[in-house]
Amino acid sequence: MKSTETRPAVMDGYYRAHEGIVNELYHYYRGKSKDELWLIRAELTRRQHMLGNIPLLASTMPIVFLIFGAQVNKYFPHDSLRWMIVALASILVIVWSINHHFRQKGRVHLDLLLVEEIMKERSQNADSAVQLEEARNSGAWPHPAMERMEHSEHKH
């Protein structure tokens, strides 16, 4: 799908094809405890900050060839087949590492988004449950929003 795509049928088809993995991840993270989610979030944050190493390594490879060009030319003359193989291999490594980087970056961001949303949802539910319990125990007339939450809890 192009980034400029605006046709609803194409967009719906694309997202329908990819929603399975998101649902599986969401259900996986929903089954984790608060402490487990905290640890997973910490690991994902660590991985998110380490992702810059791959492009750094890929972008420094040509600089290494420039610095050590004389030594490289000694073992791999420009007109030899070995030079072509080394150049092709280095290009493939660079392309693969950049592709791998962006795939990992996307997965880490997806996982981090899901974990943070679940943690936020749980904290909001915990806060609303505490507020509802405090209103019941205070003897004061409950707030209209709390009455709606109480009615919605009985429906589920």
Rank of each mutant, 00 (worst) to 15 (best):
L25I: 01
P142D: 08
M61A: 15
Q71R: 03
I63M: 11
M119S: 04
W141G: 06
Q71H: 08
G139K: 03
M11E: 05
R7H: 08
A17Y: 05
M84C: 06
K34G: 06
E24M: 06
V72T: 13
I21K: 14
A42R: 14
H154V: 04
L92T: 08
L44Q: 03
E150A: 12
A17P: 01
K74M: 14
I91N: 12
L51N: 11
N99H: 07
G69I: 01
E121A: 14
Y75Q: 15
P62T: 00
L110C: 08
H100N: 14
R136N: 07
Y28W: 07
E147L: 14
E133S: 10
R41F: 03
Y75A: 11
L110F: 02
V115Y: 00
T6P: 01
E24N: 08
V108E: 08
S3V: 05
A70I: 10
D35W: 01
E134S: 11
A140V: 03
G20V: 02
F65T: 07
K74F: 12
R122M: 04
F68Y: 13
Q71D: 09
I40S: 02
H18E: 06
M149Q: 13
E117Q: 15
Y28M: 15
M149N: 12
E153P: 00
N99I: 05
M11L: 15
S138H: 06
H151M: 13
Y29R: 04
I94C: 06
M1L: 10
I94W: 02
M119Y: 02
I67R: 11
G13K: 01
V108R: 03
E5A: 12
M146A: 05
S123Q: 13
K74A: 14
T4L: 13
L66Y: 07
R122A: 01
T60C: 07
A89H: 03
G13R: 04
L66F: 06
G106W: 05
M149D: 11
I63D: 09
A135S: 15
R148C: 01
N125P: 00
P8V: 11
L56N: 07
P142S: 10
E121T: 07
H101Y: 13
N125G: 05
A87W: 04
S59Q: 09
R16L: 12
Y26E: 11
L88V: 07
D12A: 15
V130T: 12
P55N: 07
H109M: 13
N73Y: 07
S152M: 14
H143G: 03
M50D: 15
E24C: 02
D79G: 08
R7A: 07
A42L: 11
H100P: 00
L113W: 09
G31L: 01
H154I: 04
S97P: 01
Q124A: 12
V130F: 03
S123Y: 02
G69P: 00
Y29W: 09
K74W: 09
H101P: 00
I63Y: 04
A145G: 14
P142Y: 10
S128L: 11
M1A: 13
M61E: 06
I40W: 01
K155G: 03
L88F: 09
Q71V: 08
A42T: 11
R107V: 03
